[in-house]
Design a protein around this nucleic acid. Structure first.
Length: 357
DNA sequence: ACTCTGTCTCAAGACGAC
DNA sequence: TTGAGACAGAGT
DNA sequence: GTCGTCC
């Protein structure tokens, strides 16, 4: 998944585009969280936690703590839930329906996020793409994911390693800086990513990070590079034009309609849900929530106007961060179009297929 | 001889008590 | 599963 | 910091 070698390419060829950032620096910033990657990691990494009803709580518990951790740091997370993948995507194993082990879990996650007062968005396709769209339109500061795909999708900032456990700094990748250092246009960068190997296309054997970058810098496009390469090295499924389209014009949520709103956690409902219904330890949940409340409340009292949080204090590197004062949760029902409703419902099923170029 | 790619292996989350 | 690091072996 | 536990 993702572009496997992109991270090592950047670390080797343009390390200056990565900075180490303490999580505190994201205070009051909106970060788009790629929920699918996080969920997957929780499911894969943790020794499975099963409650008395036989439910796997690994992801739910992990997401709870990690989300609270972000809130404690003053981060405004917006979760992006994965939609159906483009048909071109090579996926091993799963694909549709029941093999996705978590329809129930996704509902659980949504419920928990609502009680936490954290907004989420149902993507129409790859979560990375919608995260990137939010960032591009200044609705979010950056994308939090381990999946480097967010960069070719155009997320100007990609944040890795934002974990509760991680005492150190996160890694922030800066896309404009990266393009400048690599001396590539955004389009050329996307093509470079395809050469490195992405989910949407086969890959030319023998082209690794060094050669791919060198050739792209020298020739400027895959089309011209292909002329310099023996045909037998090009695999039959090297459909780079289609892959390029999927990166440059992916299916994303209509961000102009997205409105985001953060509320204080609903502690009683959280305890009811997480502890009484899902049987997570009530004391731990309450302790955590009390700590969060202690962090959040004094702040709101000190700064009766939300504005004051903005440019005034604490943030040496603050810039055009989007203002998130009175957004609210996605859709107004008044002018809701049936289409949006349909898109919304997609989460529950496979009703919608993506148009594939 | 050196550089690069491909393959293998391993670890993986968060908490709190100590 | 994924990603990162080590290493071996192919390519130049 | 390390380690045992989370359900």
């Amino acid at each position: 998944m993702g572009i496997q070698k992109l991270a090592s390419l950047i670390k080797k060829e343009a390390p200056e585009s990565i900075s180490a950032v303490p999580p505190r620096d994201y205070r009051d910033r909106v970060l788009a969280i790629d929920a699918s990657v996080a969920i997957y990691q929780f499911n894969a990494a943790i020794p499975t936690i099963i409650n008395r009803d036989g439910e796997d709580l690994s992801a739910l518990q992990g997401m709870f703590y990690r989300t609270v951790y972000m809130l404690e740091n003053g981060i405004k997370p917006v979760f992006v839930l994965e939609g159906p993948p483009p048909a071109l995507k090579h996926r091993k194993g799963n694909s549709d329906g029941k093999s996705t082990p978590g329809h129930g879990r996704r509902d659980d996650l949504e419920k928990m996020l609502r009680y936490l007062g954290v907004p989420y968005i149902q993507a129409t396709g790859e979560a990375e793409a919608t995260c990137a769209a939010l960032v591009k339109h200044c609705l979010a500061w950056g994308t939090v994911t381990e999946d480097m795909d967010a960069l070719p999708f155009g997320s100007t900032r990609l944040i890795r390693n934002l974990k509760a456990n991680n005492l150190g700094n996160v890694e922030e990748y800066n896309l404009p800086k990266l393009l400048k250092l690599l001396k590539l246009s955004p389009e050329q960068f996307v093509e470079l990513c395809i050469l490195l190997g992405c989910d949407y296309s086969g890959k030319i054997k023998g082209l690794g990070i060094k050669k791919a970058l060198e050739l792209m810098q020298k020739h400027g496009s895959i089309e011209r590079i292909l002329k310099t390469i023996k045909k037998d090295r090009i695999p039959a499924d090297f459909r780079y034009q289609e892959a390029k389209q999927l990166f440059l014009q992916p299916s994303v949520v209509d961000v102009s309609r997205v409105q985001l709103n953060w509320r204080a956690p609903d502690e009683e409902n959280l305890v009811q849900f997480l502890s009484h219904e899902k049987h997570l330890n009530e004391t731990k949940i309450r302790t955590k929530l009390a700590k969060l409340r202690a962090i959040q409340q004094p702040k709101e009292k000190k700064t009766p106007k939300k504005r004051s949080a903005q440019s005034s204090l604490s943030d040496p590197n603050n810039q055009k961060q989007p203002k998130m004062t009175d957004f609210f949760m996605a859709k107004k029902k008044s002018q809701k179009q049936p289409q949006r409703r349909a898109a919304r419902l997609t989460k529950s099923g496979k009703s919608m297929e993506l148009p594939v170029p």
